[in-house]
């Protein structure tokens, strides 16, 4: 027989382990959430690194409409628009769309674009080979730029998806990334196909 005190201590210790474990679980939910959304694609997030195109099969029989929506977060003064509102693409074919930004403010601002695809499932089949959203984008006061985004839609896109929307929201991240202002925006003087 163990004494009541040691029985209490053992139980308390176990319960504290549960408490510490659940505190950790609360934080573990953060990566779990990302992994879960990544696998199921339910929150419409796209990959934030460049996809490498491995096959050049193009499915000419299907046509997918991709619509672009641009918006800026509240308090973000930039002008932001896509060169075209909609494109018709064949699955497998690489397309490039340019996005126009201008910083009308009197201060230098660094922006981060966050993509969101609707319906969310389509996010799994949207592959970007190049995107301004992979990096933070600095613009000095009054500067403007055309920023490119190249993508292809995977040929395994489910048959029922014929139309999806890709939305970019620009956030002002100057406060957390001031060191970037040293360099210029890489897209500043770079001619982009379709720019005018």
């Amino acid at each position: 027989m163990t004494s009541p005190t040691s029985a209490n201590n053992r139980l308390v210790l176990r319960l504290i382990t549960v408490v510490v474990g659940m505190f950790g679980f609360g934080f573990a939910l953060v990566p779990l959430y990302d992994v879960f959304c990544d696998i199921t694609g339910i929150n419409g997030k796209t990959d934030n690194k460049a996809a490498v195109r491995t096959v050049d099969e193009i499915d000419k029989n299907r046509e997918i409409t991709v619509e672009f929506i641009t918006r800026t977060n509240s308090g973000m003064p930039w002008e932001f628009r896509a060169e075209t509102q909609k494109v018709l693409v064949h699955p497998g074919e690489v397309n490039t769309v340019a996005f126009y930004v201008r910083n009308p403010a009197s201060s230098n601002i660094i922006a981060q674009a966050i993509p969101s695809v609707s319906p969310g499932q389509a996010a799994l089949y949207l592959n970007k080979t190049e995107c301004f959203c992979f990096n933070q984008q600095p613009l000095q006061a009054g500067q403007e730029a055309w920023m490119p985004m190249s993508f292809y839609v995977d040929t395994s896109l489910p048959e029922d998806i014929t139309y999806f929307t890709l939305q970019y929201t620009l956030y002002d991240v100057t406060a957390r990334a001031t060191d970037l202002m040293e360099s210029d925006n890489p897209y500043l003087r770079q001619p982009v196909s379709g720019s005018r």
Partner: peptide, 11 residues
């Protein structure tokens, strides 16, 4: 309580 109060603390 011991299962969810720590999650609130995390949040």
């Amino acid at each position: 309580l011991i299962a969810v109060m720590p999650v609130l603390a995390g949040a």
